[in-house]
């Protein structure tokens, strides 16, 4: 069986399984009762969709960010994009408290875009022979923007919101409150259409120009995808670390760096990882739950460390 088919199968199993995990007990036998249907329709199914959309689009955003930065160790949530989205959201909530959710999201994504452009403006000036500087600068840059947000939050007594945006979780997801995530999914799908151009970006500006690519335009469109995905995720579920980092790295080890081939797998693996983590988050202190960001912080970190050390032994 091909990898793709296997992935689809595993993902479907996780998806269906996730419908029957939660505070209210629900077994597959009961699905015919109206209460069960309402539960699935209003809460479980939206949650499963939200999880899949978030996981897939964050993984793709991470992949694109890594290609633009030409560095395998950056991702939106740790390089200022997530923090910018948060800061933007905070400013909008303060200045335009009456704004609609859609407007808040748009402005938050816009802030994320500005933040990412700022990040790349800095990293472009870093020497290419020092790849470690890029993630480091990203972390500090994100920390600066984050502390600006904390400052505002502290002044206006809005720290608890920041806490919510900082740790992503799906417990509040239900019908009518997650649908904007489909836009993030759409952005991720659109990026598949220009996958070849993103792949070429990963070879650098000179090669891109040589191949007749409009470098700036492709970079900008990549940044727009990253920002939309990050902004929407922060607004609806909060920040989730590591997905954008771990998933693309693992997938690229499996199938290489040709996006046209790897992007679907990246999306599936991202969705699967977040789904599995979310199921675990619901089970570990049942009937309560743990934020999925916390679970992924542990799992993602463990996987990442394994990637760094487990594999390197064979290479050298």
């Amino acid at each position: 069986m091909s990898r793709t088919a296997l992935g689809v199968l595993a993902l479907s199993l996780l998806f269906v399984g996730s419908l029957f995990v939660g505070a209210t007990p629900l077994s597959p036998m009961d699905v015919t009762t109206p209460e069960a249907r309402a539960l699935i329709w209003d809460s479980r199914l939206p949650r499963a969709f939200a999880v899949v959309l978030t996981g897939a689009s964050l993984a793709i955003a991470g992949q694109i960010m890594q290609l633009i930065a030409r560095n395998r160790f950056v991702e939106p949530m740790t390089a200022g994009t997530g923090q910018s989205a948060m800061l933007g959201l905070l400013v909008v909530s303060v200045c335009l408290p009456a704004a609609s959710v859609g407007l808040k999201m748009a402005l938050s994504a816009f802030a994320a875009l500005i933040g990412s452009i700022g990040f790349f403006a800095i990293t472009r000036r870093l020497p290419p022979e020092e790849p470690l500087l890029v993630p480091l600068v990203g972390i500090v840059y994100g920390g600066v923007i984050g502390s600006a947000a904390v400052y505002i939050g502290f002044q206006l007594d809005m720290l608890q919101y920041i806490d919510i945006w900082l740790t992503g979780e799906f417990s509040g997801t239900m019908r009518g409150r997650y649908e904007l995530l489909w836009i993030a999914g759409l952005a991720a799908v659109l990026s598949y259409l220009v996958a070849d151009q993103f792949s070429i970006l990963g070879l650098g500006e000179t090669v891109s120009l040589n191949l007749g690519l409009n470098y700036r335009q492709v970079v900008l469109s990549g940044l727009v995808v990253i920002s939309v995905v990050t902004g929407l995720t922060v607004v609806t579920v909060g920040a989730i670390p590591f997905i954008g980092l771990v998933v693309p790295n693992l997938v690229s080890r499996l199938v290489g760096d040709n996006l046209r081939r790897s992007l679907p797998l990246t999306a599936m693996a991202g969705a699967g990882l977040v789904l599995a983590s979310d199921i675990f988050a619901r089970l570990v202190v049942h009937p309560f739950e743990v934020p999925v960001a916390t679970v992924i912080g542990i799992i993602g970190a463990a996987v990442f460390l394994w990637m760094l050390y487990g594999r390197a032994q064979h290479v050298s």
Binding site: F242, V295, I296, G297, G300, A301, A302
Partner: peptide, 8 residues
Amino acid sequence: VLAVMLRS
């Protein structure tokens, strides 16, 4: 990464 893991 370890810092994130410990915090998580």
